[in-house]
Write a protein that binds this DNA or RNA. Structure first.
Lengths: 355, 355
DNA sequence: TTGAAAGCGCTAACAA
DNA sequence: TTGTTAGCGCTTTCAA
């Protein structure tokens, strides 16, 4: 009778491994092996147990198995934002791999929570709740890195470098250089730069590297880098709009092309240029970096990258490492590629052959 | 000496409540009370314990406390996508509230994982790992609803109705009607509809309701609803582009305005119209629904909603319910508002007064 | 105000 | 192949 009662509650919240064991007339150890697909269970008992577990709606308590094994089967994803292209794509990519391997994804969004310094993650959360950590494109303080190393869980950062941490991302220098060379190859000599903000600690050295590449390539081509054409933004559309406005509000000659450190900023520039009656690409060529979801629709020329694949790979490494494959986590350079569309065109100004 | 050894490991992975208790010379029960801020601990001992816990880098194991209390302190967020505007915004909103109340967010992304039917969430995951569930704008099967009700954890769906489930979202009918009336008020009589797909089970009745509103308002104004101007998309930019192309490729007269069931589709229409040389809004007025992040930059007229606030409120209700406030979860209609920008204008065609 | 002790549900040796 | 038996680290009566 007791069994019947239990069976009637089938599917309810409180079905434990003991209920299944009792109903199957075996020990909890056997049930544990059976449901986890471990060896040392006869086909017959396994089948019986699985059937009963199913009908009872048994699901193992993650807290209990987590406590027993020391593994939570979830990995943490640390992101400064979730609603920006790079991050949302990366999250999707990480999720693909996690999902395929039966892991859970715990999201830690650091954006917009007052002071960034309330970086919780060393304290309240993350820690002891996850088996590994995926850091999306954000800087970590020395303190934080140190802390993470102490609790030594596998860690990899995607989309930027953090000293001493394995990372996966494109070669930002090469990608930026490619973009600038494309512009130069089109005959542009008056090229403006819209770089990402260097100030915030969220996007660490990526902006810096892209700026460096711009300057190097310009110098290499013996082209002037004019400080009044050096604008900055925070990778958002709005900041691209503002940058364009500032650029065009200033007196003096205007550039014929602009290299933007992200597609969202490039789009902002284009929207604002449209509004101001500046023709793209006739009067102004615009190139970005990313290959944002909207880039194709807008015809935006860009240097594309795939954050989802980057994060998927990173996640795979993390999980492999957890599976005991030592050295599975390795810094890797992800591919980028120039995608020429309709926002870049030959310069309308006197083509002045370099050198 | 043993204490010294422990202290030296301070910050390491394995610091348990027992380590803290030993170091403080009290029982684990007292440590437990102290670190959780419970009463029945003298100020002196509390302070001492907290100091030691801090210096040892103690963090409670979530598995252990989860097992002991039956609460995981994490809520699940079920989303069909993460990189689309509505969803990423909603996730951010949910996170705000969770973060503020020290809960974790476990993300379950159902998109792109082969067959949608592998809806895992009744089985593998979600269940027993979360204290409550936030469903973002997706349909649930009867089976799934039933299952969720059985394991009865608090549940609320944001952005659409699921029978018998509390939901939070805008009044889709009213929002769509507002958009269409705006067009009609501008003198348009030849209005096309770009509705969301009805087929997929992901976006359930939202598309249907918006279609209905369109038809009702048109009928009310005695305006023709032409089947050849009825297009559909899946809420993405690309589908908006395709819809525009189909619409313009068909022979016969063209509409002077189009109501799109989402901003992303509206943007697709605009991008494609630009490419085809169709002036917006001179030749074609376009209105969407959402107030996407890019809408302002593009000057898109739309009926705005705020998924982040919707999700934040929903999360608050869930957490309140978990806090023992019975009836905290209640269906609520979220606000929408017409935002007139630059993609809608009076009809260029002979204004033909209705009635 | 504090402590002792019994679990929470599962896993993992080790025996049988 | 299966069962027994300790825990895993924390919470929570109940006593003291």
């Amino acid at each position: 009778m007791a069994r019947v009662e239990r069976a009637q509650r089938g599917g309810h919240s409180g079905v434990s491994i003991e209920d299944v064991a009792a109903a199957a007339g075996v020990s909890t150890a056997t049930v544990s092996r059976a449901v986890r697909g471990l060896p040392r269970v006869s086909p017959a008992t396994r089948e019986k147990i699985l059937g009963i577990a199913e009908s009872l709606g048994y699901v193992a308590s993650s807290s209990a198995s987590g406590l027993a094994t020391g593994r939570t089967k979830t990995i943490g994803v640390l992101a400064p934002f979730v609603s920006r292209w790079f991050f949302s794509k990366a999250i999707e990519g990480a999720d693909r791999e996690l999902h395929a391997r039966q892991y859970n994804l715990s999201l830690f969004n650091l954006g917009g929570h007052g002071s960034h310094r309330e970086r919780l993650f060393s304290k309240t959360m993350v820690y002891k709740q996850i088996d590994a950590l995926l850091v999306l494109c954000m800087a970590l303080t020395h303190e934080e890195i140190e802390h993470l190393q102490k609790i030594d869980i596998p860690l990899v950062v995607v989309g930027g470098h953090v000293e001493e941490c394995p990372y996966i991302g494109i070669d930002d220098y090469a990608a930026a250089a490619t973009a600038v060379r494309h512009l130069i190859g089109l005959g542009h000599t008056d090229i403006a730069l819209l770089h990402g903000d260097d100030e915030t600690d969220l996007n660490f050295d990526v902006p810096r590297v892209r700026i460096q590449a711009f300057q190097d390539v310009m110098r290499e081509a013996r082209l002037p880098v004019r400080p009044e054409w050096d604008e900055w933004g925070d990778f958002t559309v709005r900041s691209g709009q503002e940058a364009f406005r500032r650029l065009w509000a200033r007196s003096g000659p205007k550039p014929t092309a602009i290299f933007c450190a992200s597609d969202e900023m490039a789009m902002g520039v284009i929207f604002e240029a449209n509004k101001a009656g500046v023709q793209v690409p006739e009067q102004l060529s615009v190139i970005g970096i990313d290959d944002h979801d909207f880039a194709e629709a807008m015809g935006l020329t860009t240097v594309g990258q795939q954050p989802d694949e980057q994060a998927e790979l990173a996640t795979k490494m993390l999980l492999d490492e957890l599976d005991g494959i030592a050295g599975a986590v390795q810094s890797t350079v992800a591919p980028h590629r120039l995608i020429v569309r309709r926002t870049t065109a030959p310069s309308h100004r006197r083509p002045e052959p370099s050198a």
